[in-house]
Each structure stands twice: as structure tokens, then as C-alpha cells.
Simulated assay, not measured.
Amino acid sequence: MFFLFGLTTREQLQFTGQSSCRYCGQFAPQQVVQRKTKLSVFFIPLLTLRRTRLQRCTRCGGTSRISGSEQRALASAAF
């Protein structure tokens, strides 16, 4: 008997808000992206192994990890 398993990583854009970039220092639109890594068996995703929140600058392309509280602060500033 054999099992087909693997890892799949997907990115989903949560929202875009105005903030200053950590890299270039410019006040520009920042995308908040959620990246999920899932374990799949027979091409069916079963478990989420890792969930990461990222802030990506649309001006310079700099990407950094953010916490849940930083994501909520950016979300409240976006709307």
C-alpha cells in the first residue's frame, strides 16, 4: 500500500491599506497577504500546518511578517 502526500502553499490577498513601508520608508499602499501551508493526502488538503501573515509594499516590493495585532491595526486604518 502506498500514500500520495505533499505540501501545498497558497497565498490569499486579505486587503490593501495605506501605511509606511518598513524598507523604503515611503507612505504607499501595503498589501496584507495570508500564506497557508497545508498537508494533502491523495490531493485532498487535510491539515493547515503553517499560517503566516505578510505585509507587502506595492512600491518597492519589500515583504515582512506581521502579527495578528498589526494586521488588525492595518485593517482599521484601511477602512
Results as ranks from 00 to 15, higher is better:
19 S>C: 05
7 L>K: 05
21 C>K: 01
11 E>H: 03
25 G>F: 07
41 V>T: 12
77 A>P: 06
27 F>P: 05
22 R>K: 11
42 F>S: 05
51 R>E: 05
19 S>E: 08
73 A>Q: 10
63 T>C: 07
65 R>W: 02
45 P>L: 01
10 R>F: 00
41 V>I: 13
25 G>Q: 06
44 I>L: 10
2 F>E: 11
70 E>Q: 06
53 R>G: 05
55 Q>C: 10
35 R>D: 01
18 Q>M: 15
64 S>N: 10
47 L>P: 08
69 S>D: 13
72 R>G: 15
35 R>M: 00
51 R>S: 03
69 S>N: 13
55 Q>V: 07
12 Q>V: 04
70 E>T: 04
8 T>N: 06
66 I>V: 14
49 L>P: 13
22 R>V: 12
73 A>W: 12
21 C>N: 01
39 L>A: 04
43 F>I: 13
61 G>F: 11
39 L>G: 02
75 A>K: 11
22 R>H: 13
8 T>F: 02
27 F>H: 07
11 E>Y: 01
44 I>K: 03
67 S>D: 13
29 P>S: 13
15 F>P: 02
52 T>P: 08
55 Q>K: 10
57 C>T: 00
64 S>L: 07
4 L>A: 15
21 C>H: 01
75 A>F: 12
56 R>I: 04
66 I>K: 10
25 G>S: 09
25 G>N: 02
72 R>H: 14
9 T>D: 01
9 T>P: 00
46 L>A: 10
19 S>I: 05
32 V>L: 04
29 P>R: 09
14 Q>T: 15
29 P>T: 11
70 E>A: 04
72 R>Y: 14
17 G>H: 09
66 I>A: 12
47 L>V: 13
63 T>P: 06
48 T>K: 02
79 F>N: 12
69 S>Q: 11
41 V>H: 09
56 R>T: 05
68 G>R: 05
5 F>Q: 15
48 T>M: 00
36 K>Y: 07
40 S>T: 02
50 R>E: 12
57 C>R: 00
72 R>N: 15
52 T>A: 09
52 T>E: 14
20 S>W: 08
18 Q>L: 15
46 L>W: 15
31 Q>D: 10
23 Y>R: 06
56 R>G: 01
38 K>R: 09
60 C>F: 08
35 R>H: 01
17 G>V: 06
18 Q>V: 15
77 A>W: 06
28 A>R: 12
44 I>Q: 03
71 Q>A: 05
62 G>T: 02
14 Q>H: 13
45 P>H: 01
39 L>N: 02
35 R>C: 00
30 Q>T: 06
33 V>M: 00
71 Q>N: 04
47 L>S: 12
62 G>C: 03
42 F>E: 03
53 R>K: 09
43 F>T: 13
11 E>K: 03
69 S>V: 13
16 T>R: 07
